[in-house]
Nucleic acid binder design. Structure first.
Length: 472
RNA sequence: GCUUCCUUAGCUCAGCCGGUUAGAGCAUCUGACUGUUAAUCAGAGGGUCCCUGGUUCGAGCCCAGGAGGGAGCGCCA
């Protein structure tokens, strides 16, 4: 077969191949090159897996000069024989016949040189400054493959359970969704915007003829779709203009929001629990090598923790019961626990990591600390809210049964100063054929954070956006 | 936004009580070595000590302001 006819093989396929002693073509990026003047070894990675393929260059076939540009980070195409490895450490290797350098990487300026024998490489913080190159590291390759697998598993889960994927708008005309500060979307000139008679900016002149923002949630539109399709979900970008500086917040993140007609709160909890367990199980089954690497490198309890979540039921209890546990806890808290105030993250951590030692679903929060659309309990004091709390992450899911009674919903909106006239279309769902329904929001990066065991949410999204950072 | 810590070579970090010419490991470069495995061995090059100002005979070190980053908290997913 002439070399031109050879199809490129992926590194992952070659490493697992038992079809040896054949011509192969591989292309990828050089991780390291080592050897002597007689034989050189090139570790080649193409992103198809964590491992590298060993390419052997016999110096009787290659001049030292021709290998000079094969440095860490360079891209190459290799044609050669796939053979059983002569050395230890790998089953197969490629005896190179021909190596073409596709792109060089100047060793003096390419920042991702191999790690030293002291094991100290470039820190995760330093890698954030070169986020355009960090996918080439073992860590970010593993994280991005796991991130992909989880996104795929989400679509697969919902598809298999009769949910429809709906696309809710990114630009929204209402700022009444109540989930935090919003980013304004405008085409008005920032220097001299048109003004109304009273001097304020005249948004009637703006692109949409009104003030518009980036969405903070697709939930309200998701509810509209659920009132026709039954079970739906959204999976899209979400924007919060909060000045949040933590390892668990981003200004731009991806959120999964299922919304189900005819689901009450227990149905909602059942779905959330099965959903999360299925996703973690999927990652364990399909990302074993990448997870093992992250386990060995960063977090020796990662695999045990993931398996535990899959194997054990989540602990369900009401907010009121949680407050009782916290009040009698021997642990000293910085903030006092009082019925009616929201739990601090130290309280949530105690419940999850110390008291129950498993994921917790807290329900029936006081109505005054939750959103207007949550269904009021019969006692009139609490609402049918649920927060799923995970170890190390805190709140990974927030959801509720929605208030389906028009009168009660309007009363809650009035109480909480939510402008009902702007949400006339939302209220129409309660006006025409209203049904009990529920839903929740899963922070996708928080899921990736949990599954990868990474410590900072900025390291589980390719190009993180947070206060003072929109590079790349 | 608040609290707190940090910023010294490409990277990870030392740097004593304020005292001569700024230190290590890794990386890079050069050389050696017939199958390496984070190769090994020998040598070399590499510095705006984050910035600005101040104190001092003398500042990487002390003081003030600024910038950037980490961790914790709040907001939440």
């Amino acid at each position: 077969m002439p070399p031109e006819a050879l199809r490129r093989s992926r590194v992952n396929d070659l490493l697992t191949s038992t079809d040896l002693n054949r011509d192969v073509l591989v292309k990828g990026w050089v991780r390291t090159r080592r050897g002597n003047k007689y034989v050189q070894f090139i570790a080649l990675n193409d992103g198809s897996c964590l491992a590298t393929l060993q390419v052997v260059a016999d110096l009787s076939k290659f001049s030292e000069e021709s290998l000079k540009d094969i440095t860490t980070g360079a891209s190459v195409a290799v044609r050669g024989q796939l053979v059983a490895s002569q050395g230890k450490g790998q089953a197969v290797e490629v005896q190179a016949e021909e190596i073409t350098v596709l792109g060089t990487a100047d060793p003096e300026t390419y920042p991702l040189q191999k790690r030293g024998s002291d094991q100290k490489g470039i820190s995760l913080e330093a890698l954030r400054d070169i986020a355009h190159l960090r996918p080439r590291t073992n860590t970010f390759g593993a994280v991005l493959r796991i991130r992909h697998a989880l996104a795929f598993a989400i679509h697969q889960y919902f598809n298999e359970h009769g949910f429809y994927y709906v696309h809710t708008p990114i630009i929204t005309g209402s700022d009444a969704e109540g989930a935090g500060q919003m980013f304004r979307v405008t085409t008005l000139p920032p220097e001299h915007p048109p003004r109304t008679a009273d001097g304020s900016v005249d948004f009637a002149e703006d692109f949409f003829g009104k003030q518009t923002n980036l969405t903070v949630s697709g939930q309200l539109e998701g509810e509209l779709a659920a009132m026709a399709l039954g079970q739906v979900y959204t999976f899209g970008p979400t924007f919060r203009a909060e000045n949040s500086n933590t390892a668990r917040h981003l200004a731009e993140f991806w959120m999964v929001e299922p919304e189900m007609a005819f689901y009450d709160l227990p149905d909602n909890m059942d779905l959330a629990e099965d959903f999360l367990q299925s996703l973690v199980r999927y990652a364990l089954q399909h990302c074993a090598a990448d997870l093992q690497f992250l386990h060995d490198t960063y977090d020796k309890e990662l695999l045990g923790r993931l398996q535990f979540v899959v194997d054990n039921q989540f602990q369900r209890l009401t907010y009121t019961e949680a407050v009782e546990i916290l009040k009698t806890a021997k642990q000293k808290f910085e903030f006092p626990v009082d019925w009616g105030t929201d739990l601090q993250s130290e309280h949530e951590r105690y419940l999850v990591e110390k008291h129950f030692k498993k994921p917790v679903i807290l329900t029936n929060y006081p109505k005054d600390i939750k959103a207007f659309y949550m269904k009021l309990d019969d006692d009139g004091r609490t609402v049918r809210a649920m927060d799923v709390l995970f170890p190390g992450i805190g709140e990974i899911i927030g959801g509720s049964q929605r208030e389906e009674d028009l009168g009660k919903l309007e009363a809650r909106m009035a109480e909480m100063h939510v402008p009902a006239d702007e949400l006339w279309w939302y209220l129409d769902t309660r006006r025409f054929g209203t049904v009990p329904h529920s839903g929740f929001g899963l922070g996708f990066e928080r899921l990736v954070l949990f599954v990868t065991g990474m410590g900072n949410i900025r390291d589980v999204i390719p190009f993180p956006r947070y206060p003072k950072k929109a590079e790349f």
